[in-house]
Computed example of a mutant assay.
Amino acid sequence: MSDKPKSAFDPKPPRRNFYGRRHGKTLRPSQKGYLSEDLGELRPRGISIQENPERSPIDPKAIFGDDRPVWIEIGFGGGEHMVHMAATYPEIGIIGCEPFINGVAMLLGKIRAAGVGNVSVHPGDARDLMDVLPDASIDRAFLMYPDPWPKARHHRRRFVTPEHLLPLARVMRPGGEFRVATDIPDYVRQTLEEVPLAGFDLTRETGEPWEDWISTRYEQKALREGRIPHYVTFRRQG
C-alpha cells in the first residue's frame, strides 16, 4: 500500500463528505436540556475552524487537566459503552465522537445518571477531532457497531478505509489498542483487510466479547434479529 500514516500534524485537512444522519426524532424536553446545559462544558475546544482557524494541535492534557491516558470512541451511538468504560476506568479520560445529535443527547443523560466526570463529548465527525490531535496521543480507540453501509457501492463510506484509518494510526500511541465490534460479516472482512494496512497488528478475533464489555442496544437488536456479534482487537505498530 502506497499510503502511510502521516508522521506529523497536518494543519490543512482535505475537504471531505459526511454520510449519515445528524438529526432523528424530535428531542424530548429533558434531552434538549442536556444539550443546552451540559454539552458546552463537556465539549473539547479547538476542533472547529471557528475556534481554531490555524488548525493548531490541541492538548489532550488540557481536556482532562492532567496527563492521564486518553481513549476515544468513534460513533458512540446511545452512549452505553462509553459511560461504562468511563465508570470502569476512572483513571483514564475518554473522548466520544458522534455527529447524530439524538445520540449525543442520550449520552448526556447517561453521563448525568452515572455521575462520571472523566468524559469529553465531540458532537461531530471523528475525523475533525483526529485532524487536531497530536501524533501518538491516544492510548485506545473503540469502533462499536459502526454504520454498516451494506451496499457494495457504499463500502468506501465505512470507517475501516484509509481515509479514516491512516489519521487514526497517526494519533494512536505505539502499542495502543483499537477495538472493533460489529455484527456484519462483510464489515469484519473489510476490517481484517484494511486495518493492518494502516499500521496495526491483529491480536484478537473472536465471537466472545472483551471481559470489560457491556452489551449495547445495537448489539441487543442484532441478537434479536439473529445476527452474530464479532469482536476484533488490533495493536498499533511501532
Rank of each mutant, 00 (worst) to 15 (best):
I95G: 03
M106Q: 13
I63Y: 02
I94S: 02
I47E: 00
M82T: 12
N102H: 04
F76D: 01
E91N: 14
I228M: 14
I94Y: 06
L39R: 07
G20S: 13
Y89I: 03
G33T: 08
F234W: 02
S2A: 13
P162Y: 08
P185S: 12
P14M: 11
A152K: 13
D59G: 09
L27N: 06
S120Q: 03
P209C: 05
N118S: 13
E177N: 09
R55N: 11
T88D: 12
A8R: 12
F159S: 01
L223V: 15
E219F: 06
H84L: 03
G75T: 04
E163T: 13
Y19C: 10
P44M: 09
I184H: 15
L197M: 14
I111P: 00
C97T: 12
R43W: 00
K151E: 10
T88P: 02
P99L: 06
R158I: 02
D128F: 11
V70Q: 05
D212L: 09
Q31F: 07
R156P: 01
R55L: 05
E51M: 07
R170Q: 02
R153W: 01
T26H: 11
R224S: 11
E73Q: 05
A105G: 04
I72H: 00
E219K: 01
T233M: 07
E91R: 15
S137L: 06
K110L: 10
A114C: 03
V132W: 04
S56V: 15
A114W: 03
S215Y: 00
A62R: 13
P90E: 06
R127T: 05
L35Q: 08
V119Y: 01
R157K: 14
R140F: 03
P146G: 05
P29Y: 11
A222F: 09
G46R: 01
R173G: 00
T233S: 15
R127N: 07
T191G: 12
R43N: 08
E91V: 08
H23I: 14
I49Q: 12
K12Q: 12
R224A: 15
L42I: 09
D10P: 09
H155T: 04
K110P: 00
R45F: 07
D66S: 15
I101V: 12
V121Q: 00
N118I: 10
G20W: 05
K61Q: 10
T203C: 10
N118D: 07
Y145P: 00
K25G: 11
D212R: 09
F178Q: 02
K32A: 13
L35Y: 15
A222N: 08
A136G: 06
G77H: 01
H230G: 04
Y34T: 03
A86P: 00
T88R: 13
F64Y: 14
R127V: 08
F178V: 08
F64C: 12
P44C: 09
P13K: 10
G226Q: 07
P123I: 02
D139M: 08
